[in-house]
């Protein structure tokens, strides 16, 4: 593998000038054989959908296979394509509950294990609007994006009318499109915190009660970043922060916690030193912007296989901050 890296290093820059960074063409120059890391593929489950249309569910590590060169076609090679819609939320909520700032940065990534490079047609929601500027008013559940950027290889001739993208995916992972949205969203923010702070001057204590409410339609589950059974909380001296970990919250439910803070030299101004709450979470199967892939079709005249198409939606928190004072 060291020599594969050396090979790459010889070809990409020459005397400091970058030559070629496209993986398609670079593959021809790398002569070392790749060492494949075989991951264990767990069998997928079959989940029942509406009207008896079953859809299959595969574990999230399914996409982490190596892309093997076409000259090493294995018998177990499956023709699959994985599409991820990943959104990152940046939200800032003031102490009075006002939302100061709310933005979504989203991107759609495609990882193709298909032989050759057939044309793929992706259909997005028909009611997408692209309007640069401030928040959308009177949305009617429309999806209004502030900005959208496409990959070079995406053909946009049918995008304006039918919102259909045509792309010939190169092997490996690439970003089909990236978009940005700010202001009001079609659905409400996923988490709301109701804080209550009580001061007890005699004992030199603050009691902070937090109720965390999850406003997502109930069939979705939320998993926060971390291990641990159920909930736990600890005080980290180095960061001067209390970390409260919750493994899962189902939608439309809430969790409460009470924290007692003892202060050595009491001063009525100490309350100002209570910092904001920052949340880190991951919400599978949910995107705040309501962007959807209506369909994904393949057009390949040379091969006659039926490929497996996997689609996944994930929302991450980039910076979700709620101020207490």
């Amino acid at each position: 593998m060291l020599t594969t890296i050396c090979d790459g290093n010889l070809e990409v820059p020459d005397f400091g000038f970058p030559q070629n960074t496209s993986t398609d063409t670079l593959k021809a120059y790398i002569h070392n054989d790749p060492i494949l890391i075989k991951g264990e593929r767990q069998p997928g489950e079959v989940a029942s959908g509406l009207f008896g249309a079953d859809h299959r569910v595969a574990p999230s590590s399914a996409a982490n296979k190596p892309i093997s060169a076409s000259r090493q076609l294995q018998s177990t090679h499956k023709n699959e394509i994985f599409v991820d819609v990943i959104e990152r939320l940046t939200v800032l909520i003031a102490s009075n509950g006002n939302v100061i700032r709310s933005e979504i940065d989203g991107l759609m990534q495609m990882k193709s294990f298909l032989i050759g490079s057939p044309e793929i047609q992706l259909g997005l929601n028909e009611d997408i609007h692209i309007r640069a500027g401030v928040s959308n008013i009177g949305c009617n559940n429309q999806v209004t994006l502030e900005d959208i950027n496409f990959h070079q290889s995406v053909k946009l001739n049918e995008f304006d009318n039918n919102k259909i993208l045509k792309v010939n995916p190169p092997e490996g992972e690439f970003t089909v499109l990236s978009y940005h949205m700010s202001g009001d969203f079609p659905s409400s923010l996923p988490f709301v915190i109701y804080p209550y702070i009580e001061e007890i001057p005699d004992k030199g204590q603050f009691i902070i009660q937090l109720k965390l409410e999850c406003d997502i339609p109930s069939k979705d589950h939320v998993v926060t970043y971390v291990t641990g059974v159920g909930e736990s909380a600890e005080y980290k001296q180095s960061e001067k922060a209390v970390v409260w970990k919750i493994k899962k919250i189902p939608g439309l439910s809430d969790v409460t916690a009470k924290f007692k803070v003892s202060v050595s030299d009491w001063n009525k101004k100490n309350r100002m030193e209570i910092g904001p709450i920052s949340m880190e979470f991951e919400i599978p199967n949910f995107v705040l912007s309501h962007l959807q892939i209506r369909f994904l079709k393949l057009f390949d005249r040379e091969h006659s296989y039926v490929p497996l198409r996997w689609v996944r939606y994930v929302t991450h928190s980039d910076s979700y901050v709620v101020r207490l004072i």
């Binding site: 940046t90 700032r101 904001p276 920052s278 910076s319």
Partner: peptide, 10 residues
């Protein structure tokens, strides 16, 4: 100007 507000993990 709101784009210049600091994020928590910056």
């Amino acid at each position: 100007y709101k784009k210049f507000f600091c994020r928590y993990n910056d």
